[in-house]
C-alpha cells in the first residue's frame, strides 16, 4: 500500500469502471467523431446536408451561376421555357431561373440571420434564468410566457407591416420574437448542469461567473440548442416565404422564392404558366425538407431528447 504503482499499471487496473449516467452523457458529447459517425448513418440527413450545402453554394455564387441578371426585363414576358430561358420568363419578362438562383440568397440569409439573432438572445436569457434562479428566473420565464402567448405568424405579419417589409425587418422581427423557446431549453439544461460537480468545482476553484457560464455550462448545453436552431432555420425560411407570398416580405423587384410564388395568386398564372410558380415552390419545399432531415439526424446523433 505505497505509492509505487506505475501510472501505466494504474491505467490497466481500473480501466473498466462502469460508467455513471452523467459520464455517459458527457462521453458521447465530447467525441466529435462519434457524433459524425452516428450522423452519417442517417441517409436522409446526409442527403439533406448535401442539398443544403449546394443551396448555400448557389446563394454564394449566384452572380456566376445565374444565366441572366435577375432584374433584367426581356421582351417576351410569360414566355414558356426555351433554350435561352430554361424556366421561361415571368409576368414582367424576367428570367425565372436567374431569379430562382438569386432567391436562394434570401432564403439562406433569413434562415441563418434570424436564427443567429434569436439563438443569441435565447442563450443569454436562458443562461441568466437558469444560473441565477430566484426572481431573475421568474421574471424571464414570465416574459417567455408572454411571448409564447402571441400567435407568432400574426405578430410577425403585423410588426413587419408596421416597420416596413424588407429582408432586414424579417430577420430582426423573427429574431426578437422566437428566442423564448431557446431560452427555455437553455434554462432547463443549465438547471441540471449547474448541479454537476464540475460546475461546483469551478465555483470552488474561484472561477468568475462568465467563465463558468460560457466555458463550463454552455458547451455542455449545446446539443439541444443546435438541434432546435436547425429546425428553426427551416421554420424561418417558411416564414419568410409566407410573408413574401403575402406581399409582406421581400418586395419585388428583389427575387425571393416566396414573392415569385405570389404571382400564382392570379388564376391564369396558376393554370397555364406552371413554370413561374412550381420551381420556387419546389425549392422552398426542398430546402425546408432537407434542413428538417438534417435536424432530425442531428437530434439523433447528439441524442437530445426533445421531440420538436
Amino acid at each position: 500500500m505505497t505509492l509505487t504503482e506505475k501510472p501505466g499499471t494504474a491505467g490497466t487496473a481500473d480501466a473498466v469502471v462502469p460508467d455513471s449516467a452523467a459520464a455517459a452523457l458527457g462521453r458521447e458529447r465530447s467525441s466529435a467523431g462519434f457524433v459524425v459517425r452516428r450522423f452519417l448513418r442517417h441517409r436522409m440527413a446526409v442527403a439533406g446536408l448535401v442539398i443544403v450545402a449546394l443551396m448555400v453554394l448557389t446563394a454564394a455564387l449566384a452572380p456566376l451561376l445565374a444565366p441572366h441578371d435577375p432584374n433584367q426585363i426581356f421582351g417576351s414576358f410569360e414566355a414558356a421555357p426555351s433554350a435561352d430561358h430554361l424556366l421561361g420568363t415571368d409576368a414582367v419578362g424576367r428570367d425565372v431561373l436567374s431569379r430562382l438562383i438569386y432567391g436562394a440568397r434570401v432564403s439562406m440569409s433569413v434562415g441563418v440571420g434570424a436564427v443567429a439573432v434569436y439563438v443569441l438572445i435565447g442563450v443569454l436569457f436562458g443562461l441568466l434564468a437558469g444560473y441565477y434562479g430566484r426572481w431573475v428566473d421568474s421574471v424571464i420565464m414570465r416574459i417567455t410566457d408572454v411571448f409564447m402567448s402571441f400567435p407568432y405568424f400574426m405578430v410577425i405579419l403585423i410588426l413587419v407591416s408596421i416597420l416596413g417589409p424588407s429582408l432586414l425587418t424579417i430577420i430582426v422581427v423573427i429574431g426578437f420574437l422566437a428566442w423564448p423557446m431557446i431560452a427555455r431549453l437553455v434554462r432547463g439544461s443549465v438547471l441540471s448542469i449547474k448541479q454537476t460537480d464540475y460546475v461546483q468545482a469551478g465555483v470552488a476553484l474561484g472561477y468568475s461567473t462568465p467563465r463558468i457560464l460560457f466555458r463550463h455550462i454552455l458547451p455542455n448545453a449545446l446539443s439541444p440548442i443546435i438541434v432546435n436552431a436547425t429546425f428553426g432555420v427551416a421554420q424561418a425560411i417558411i416564414l419568410e416565404s409566407g410573408l413574401s407570398f403575402l406581399g409582406m416580405g421581400v418586395r419585388p423587384p428583389a427575387a425571393s422564392w416566396g414573392n415569385m410564388l405570389s404571382e400564382a395568386q392570379s388564376i391564369t398564372v396558376l393554370s397555364s404558366q406552371p413554370w413561374i410558380w412550381i420551381p420556387p415552390g419546389l425549392m422552398i419545399l426542398l430546402a425546408v425538407l432537407s434542413i428538417n432531415f438534417v435536424g432530425d439526424g442531428l437530434r439523433d446523433s447528439l441524442e437530445s431528447r426533445s421531440y420538436t
Partner: peptide
C-alpha cells in the same frame, strides 16, 4: 410526416387548387 411539416401552406394550397 416530414413532407407534411415541410411543405408551406401556400404552396400546398396552390398545388391543390391547380
Amino acid at each position: 410526416a416530414f413532407l407534411g411539416i415541410s411543405v408551406p401552406h401556400f404552396f400546398l394550397g396552390l398545388v391543390l387548387i391547380y
